[in-house]
Amino acid sequence: MSNLVSRSRRKLVATALATTTALALLSGSAAAAEWKYAIEEALEEVQGVYAQKFKEHVEANSDHTVAIFPFGTLGESADTTELAQMGAIQFVDLSPGFTGSLIPELQVFLLPYVLPEEPDILADFYKTSETINKELAAMYEQQNLHLIDMFPEGEVVMTTKEAVKAPADLDGVKFRVMTTPLLVETYNAFGATATPLPWGEVFGALQLNMIQGQENPMFFVESTKMYEVTDHITFTGHNTFTTAVAANKAFYDGLSEDDKAVVSAAADAAYEHIIEYQKGLQDEALAKIKEAKPSITVTTLTDEERAPFREAAKKVRDKFVEITGDSGKKILEGFEADIEASTKRVKGDG
């Protein structure tokens, strides 16, 4: 029943947005348009900061305007992704944690202990990776989406009701994950009981003890007050949260060359801005959490303590290849080669 309700809601929203667009075109210049852009977070969070910089650049360099729709205004991530595919909105943020069910190869971003932890290497990798910007970009096209950009949002941390120092500490813990198969595999391998849930249900589920843990970047843990319903934060170093920005393919293909150049330049400006913006963001968020809840415990696992999690991650890697076949194996190999190239470039070894 909930899926039927969700589909009906998306159709109603799509119709309303399409009508608004048509009226705007009738009442104003056909050359200028309002581009609708839905994000998975609030305006003051990382995706919102990126989107506002994108909007600023577009509006300063064209006659177009950009309307940003924060999380919840057009539904959950599945809703906004479908609205973008339908062409009801022009731009959308869609993290691989949700779109991995649409494009299985995107789950490469969810593999634990594959992405580098160093921010400078990450920033170079997302910008220069041919695996991302060519191979994976082509897979978006098959879903009626055009990949505009990808960027990191910070190291993922676990927040739980009980302390976590080893996989055994996750035994019996119902751990919320995004609705994609590889995250289920990851937390089951880590010893927990993976529990897929839409984001809107997570706070209440933790409050009612229906689940006992979740993962997200530190800024999001702070802004969404996840620390109020969990007591322990653990840095395991297992992943970085990734976000993609995509456009409806038909919309993008129909843009003039000048407008495509505006979109590309806006994405470049927003990317540079968000990388700079995130410097120190994790520490600032953690300081706010500690001030709001002095009893919170924060643990960074040592290399020795991470070893059993790394060992468990091998099973997840095998599962990824099993799910995605030769295509996924090729993506993973290219992914790791691109990371190595970025590492050499940033460290001056290549």
Rank of each mutant, 00 (worst) to 15 (best):
S295T: 08
F235D: 00
P217N: 09
S2K: 13
L4V: 08
A285E: 07
S77W: 10
E340P: 09
F91D: 05
G204N: 11
N209Y: 03
G75I: 10
Q143Y: 07
V92W: 02
A267E: 00
S342A: 15
F69P: 03
F251C: 06
K134W: 00
F220G: 12
T230Y: 02
T131I: 12
E272K: 15
A14P: 12
F109D: 11
N3R: 14
E41Q: 14
V157K: 03
A266H: 09
E276Y: 07
K344L: 15
A24D: 06
Y50H: 10
M139W: 04
D63T: 14
V66K: 03
R310A: 07
K329Y: 11
N133Y: 12
L145M: 08
G328L: 11
R9I: 11
S295R: 10
A307E: 10
Y271H: 15
A244N: 11
R176E: 06
S256H: 14
Q47A: 09
V164C: 02
E34W: 01
T159H: 01
V157H: 04
A30E: 01
F91L: 15
D253T: 13
L106T: 00
L170P: 08
T131Q: 03
L301K: 00
G237V: 01
Q107V: 08
G213S: 04
P294F: 08
E155T: 06
L122V: 13
F241L: 09
S6A: 13
H57E: 09
A163T: 10
F335T: 04
E44H: 15
A192F: 02
S95M: 07
K279R: 13
M218C: 05
Q90S: 09
G254C: 13
T73P: 02
G75K: 02
K344A: 15
A267I: 04
I275K: 14
L4W: 00
S8L: 14
M158F: 12
F220M: 06
N248S: 04
E105M: 04
F320I: 02
M178A: 13
V164P: 06
E201L: 07
P294Q: 10
P152F: 12
G334A: 08
D338M: 12
T180P: 04
V177Y: 02
T15E: 08
E34Q: 04
E105F: 15
V157T: 05
E130C: 07
A312H: 00
A137Q: 06
G254V: 07
Q107F: 12
E276V: 08
L122D: 10
Q212Y: 07
P217R: 02
K314P: 09
V114P: 08
F109A: 06
D231A: 10
D120G: 01
Q212L: 10
V5L: 07
K11S: 10
K36L: 06
I132F: 06
L136S: 01
F71Y: 14
L182N: 05
E322H: 10
L115H: 09
